[in-house]
Design a protein around this nucleic acid. Structure first.
Lengths: 214, 214
DNA sequence: CATTGTGAACGGATTCACAGCC
DNA sequence: GGCTGTGAATCCGTTCACAATG
């Protein structure tokens, strides 16, 4: 078994970043890497990186470091990217288009198998047709899709979510600015970009106030 | 002064969500709201909401709750959305387009004043022309832009960031899958959508494993 | 002897429980 | 009586310091 304990969310959030850095290192033919150097590349502390990895096993060699390819392999397995995960995009506005394009193209770890929108027929991308939402249930059943990216407008988000849940979704990346109601066993990650921008503005304004205060 | 202590990041992250919920409540003509109901609307606990707000002052009435309009007003001030913040978008691919469209349109709290790309001339959105990157320094100086959304490809991200920093940026919402090197006083928030999707897959695969285990 | 792996110490964030107030 | 505001208790994640080891 790969997993020892259940890893905390905070750890899981960092795993894809380690993976990304490893991919870059491997591309530069780096074969061994210490937690110290990983620290510089990621911005996390070396102790934290070692501890994060230790949740899943002992992948390094004392006195030496981590073998980049081996560690990458393990991370792929841990995250669940070793087998291509089928993903659908629901909502084909600019954001849906951006996500589809990016993940169907450059991101070899995931497999976007379907794109849905209220208005179908629009030209899709990467060889994918845009299907109407009412074909979603049949499609999900047939393809056994478990993960969706949701980029529909806020007022449609809950209805679409209900439909996804009915048809067996287990995880949703939600870009709509609403709290989705889902059963306990469905994992929702909110990626509301408006919210993130506003958080940013908090820090930008804080700076200003500090300057004024001096 | 609005701010008592410096609020923890965890609190700041939630403020825009409170704001969003308040906007919805006000639209539905709700005038008073208890932390309990806010809890249902946001998914955070009532205690947490009360504590979060308490970092900035006592905005409620004991025995009654919070006045929605008043609380909204205070949150706007706290976050720094009371005065329109000027924002630029750098990188006008699909993602840049989606962000520009969304924030220039529906999001009345921010003001996108400029859009930049390596290839200008493309038709912009919402009355904004897409300017070439080399006009960025002059533009930032003139408009005193402090906040940027960065949606350029990974290999261009650091160079563009350096340019932004040179011209006085204080906060960057970074969508490129790279760790940006910036001075201490520049706040970077990473919104790497690939990373978020992979985190999601972790939880989706975890479910599968659990089912297999049983 | 450099670097991993990890128990112990620390610090920050959340939850609890209740005092304070309308 | 009901709900806010908050100190105290708890939980969780990070950092420290060092033992283990190739």
């Amino acid at each position: 078994m790969t997993r020892r304990n259940k890893a905390p969310k905070s750890v899981v959030k960092r795993l894809p970043i380690y993976l990304r850095v490893l991919d870059n290192l491997i591309r530069r033919d780096v074969e061994i890497i210490s937690s110290r150097v990983l620290s510089e590349e990621t911005g996390f502390t070396a102790e934290q990186i070692r501890k994060d990895l230790a949740y899943f096993g002992a992948f390094g060699t004392r006195g030496t470091g981590y073998n980049t390819s081996y560690l990458r392999e393990r991370l792929l397995r841990i995250i669940g990217l070793d087998k291509q995960t089928k993903i659908i995009v629901v909502g084909f506005g600019h954001l849906g288009k951006a996500l589809t394009r990016y993940n169907a193209g450059k991101n070899r770890y995931v497999d976007i198998v379907g794109v849905f929108d209220k208005k179908p027929g629009e030209t899709g991308v990467e060889g994918l047709k845009v299907l109407p939402i009412d074909q979603l249930p049949k499609f999900m059943q047939k393809e056994k899709v478990k993960v969706a990216m949701l980029t529909v407008p806020a007022d449609a988000a809950q209805d679409v979510t209900d439909l996804l849940v009915e048809n067996g979704i287990t995880a949703i990346l939600n870009f709509a600015p609403v709290k989705l109601d889902v059963p306990e066993d469905v994992y929702v990650h909110n990626a509301d970009l408006t919210t993130e921008l506003q958080t940013l503005i908090y820090y930008a304004s804080e700076d200003e106030k500090q300057h004024q205060a001096e």
